[in-house]
Design a protein around this nucleic acid. Structure first.
Length: 547
RNA sequence: GGCGGUAUCGUCUAGGGGACUAGGACACAGCCCUCUCAAGGCUGGAACACGGGUUCGAAUCCCGUUACCGCUACCA
């Protein structure tokens, strides 16, 4: 980790501030395009271009985009892990809002917790958003690049008497907190440092006693009209005097967010419900800083099957996990959109364009929802069925290659054939991974024969052998297209006096080793005459060999 | 503990005083279609947390209870 906070020189900064009555602090604008950590990733991708963003816009209906009231929303994840589905959902709603009503969707990486933030996580967040197709409209901002502004905002509050120095140590605070809790009481900071005489404060500063800066919460009640929950009010008495600047001069979350949201002129803060209790603190900070308030919207949490907030122990919770499981980004977006929002009618499966067109803040839900993987898979199957083979091919080819089914060159040479196979398989599978698995017998001869299918369809070995013998000679003389094959094979069944199924099922096992596959005549065409006959021959051999 | 939030089938939801013997979807079961599977169609079981109000009338409004979730850091 690079020492991105080097050179803060905090005590000097504090001193100079104390002598001055206001922070003259030249506004420090974060160098947004530069990653504080040196990541070469400031711009997301071509998908971020203005042109692209506006192409989304014209797909939606109406909604004014007059610059004066243009919305500015942001997604502000902390890079301490992979992009979680909860975070992805939050990002999606912010994105949907902007694509629907106009404005800008911003990305801010909250990397001020240097102990936990990693470049790898930042990359994972970019990858996840890119995969989902959630493009942001301005270069990503790194919060760590703005600590100077955060600090000057904190010092300004100090200078204006809206905050005070607190000399209490962490150890002391912990002890008092523990004591209060053991008596069943809620711990609230008793403002003892706010009552220190001026000369005592000066003495401690002179003695180099470390201090934090605490925001002095005013009397009254803080309320706001939450876009999803209606009015929420907190008596300020329940809001603790929060620390806004650590004793090492770095900012605390609530201050940093407010400072950045003001700087980025955010108009609507849409985030998870776990931030509800941070909101009064932040509103108070906006007011103290003299900045106009944004609107707030708190989305419900996403829960695991056990009803607890979704976390790693629930299994796959990173969006990247689902990408690897074979879920389509379109399906993931669709599914996530329905977790906390409803179109108001019974519409569930829909493409992104409809999601944008139908999105409305009215449809935002308050109740936490359980992440149901089964339904995600079903929805993915629906999307697979709606997506053309041409679109699916670039997704499936790498998988087929990595599974050793073929080389990329081979796939390219047999593209028409490959597309035809995809077309037959896409409505039968629920994930791309499953489709590739189903494709195995069409690529390789060493596929597995399903024991159950063999036991059931090749029960009477002699009879099956005679049957396949007949099928083989009929196949050898048949024209090789679905219509002729069907005609000839059905005729054979008639001649033999058996139902078509009695003939086709044993053949299916011979061809693909399973009792489930696309229509048998399509399978024959896909396999080709030579390979089909070879597989029948092999089945005959297997039937003869078996005791 | 304190503060805040939420409460309709197992799950996601529709519902916003009478159209509700509560609708749809996933999952589950059965049937149909059919060369199998998938898809599709049909059918079935399955819910308004509880208690008070308000009202001619409450899933819908109000209060309380309960349950669950979140927050309660010199984390974000």
């Amino acid at each position: 980790m690079l020492n991105r906070y080097a050179g803060l020189n905090l005590y000097r900064g504090f001193e100079s501030l104390r002598l001055r009555s206001s922070s003259d602090g030249r506004p420090v604008v974060g160098r947004a395009t530069l990653s504080a950590s040196g990541l070469p990733l400031a711009f997301p991708s071509r998908a971020t271009s203005r042109a692209d963003a506006s192409s989304h816009r014209h797909m939606t209906d109406s909604t004014p985009t007059d610059a004066a009231s243009s919305h500015r929303l942001r997604f502000a994840p902390s890079p301490t892990g992979f992009l979680h589905v909860g975070g992805a959902r939050t990002a999606l709603f912010n994105w949907l809002f902007v694509r629907k009503y106009g404005g800008a969707f911003l990305l801010r990486i909250e990397d001020t917790d240097k102990a936990r933030s990693t470049d790898e996580s930042t990359r994972a967040i970019f990858d996840g958003l890119r995969w989902l197709g959630l493009d942001w409209d301005e270069p990503a901002v790194y919060q760590g690049a703005n600590v100077a502004r955060h600090r000057s905002d904190a010092l300004r509050l100090l200078a204006e008497g809206k905050a005070y120095r607190c000399f209490c140590t962490t150890a002391d605070l912990d002890e008092r907190r523990k004591a209060a809790e053991s008596q069943g009481a809620a711990f609230v900071y008793d403002r003892r440092c706010d009552r220190l005489p001026v000369d005592e404060i000066d003495r401690r500063i002179a003695a180099g006693v470390p201090f934090t800066i605490r925001f002095r919460v005013p009397d009254g009640t803080t309320r706001w009209d939450d876009m999803v929950r209606g009015e929420i009010a907190f008596p300020n008495a329940d809001v603790d005097d929060l620390i806004i600047l650590r004793s090492d001069g770095t900012p605390i979350y609530n201050l940093a967010v407010v400072s950045d949201d003001i700087a980025q002129r955010i108009t609507l803060v849409m985030r998870g419900e776990d931030h509800i209790s941070n909101t009064p603190k932040q509103i108070l900070l906006y007011e103290a800083l003299g900045a106009p308030l944004p609107r707030f919207a708190h989305l419900p949490n996403i829960l695991g099957a056990d009803g607890k907030k979704l976390s790693k122990r629930h299994g796959a919770t990173a969006v990247g996990d689902y990408e690897h499981l074979g879920i389509l980004a379109e399906a993931m977006v669709n599914f996530l959109a329905l977790l906390g929002w409803s179109a108001g009618d019974d519409r569930e499966v829909m493409p992104r364009a409809d999601l944008i067109a139908l999105f409305s803040t009215e449809g935002l839900l308050r109740k936490p929802g359980v992440f149901d993987v089964k339904k995600l898979e079903w929805m993915n199957g629906q999307h697979l069925g709606m997506t053309s083979a041409e679109v699916l091919e670039p997704l499936l080819s790498p998988l087929a290659v990595s599974q050793g089914l073929a080389t990329a060159v081979e796939l390219a040479t047999r593209r028409a054939w490959w597309l035809q196979l995809i077309d037959l398989l896409r409505i039968r599978g629920r994930t791309t991974v499953e489709i590739v698995r189903m494709a195995v017998p069409y690529f390789r001869d060493d596929f597995e024969y399903d024991p159950d299918a063999v036991a059931k369809q090749w029960k009477d070995r002699d009879a099956t052998a005679r049957l396949l013998e007949a099928v083989r000679s009929r196949l050898a003389g048949s024209g090789w297209d679905p219509v002729e094959l069907e005609r000839d094979l059905r005729a054979l069944a008639d001649e033999l006096g058996i139902g078509a199924g009695k003939l086709l099922q044993p053949l299916r096992v011979a061809l693909v080793g399973s009792s489930a596959s696309p229509g048998i005549f399509d399978v024959l065409v896909l396999l080709g005459r030579e390979r089909s006959l070879r597989r029948v021959d092999r089945a005959l051999t297997m039937l003869a060999e078996a005791d």
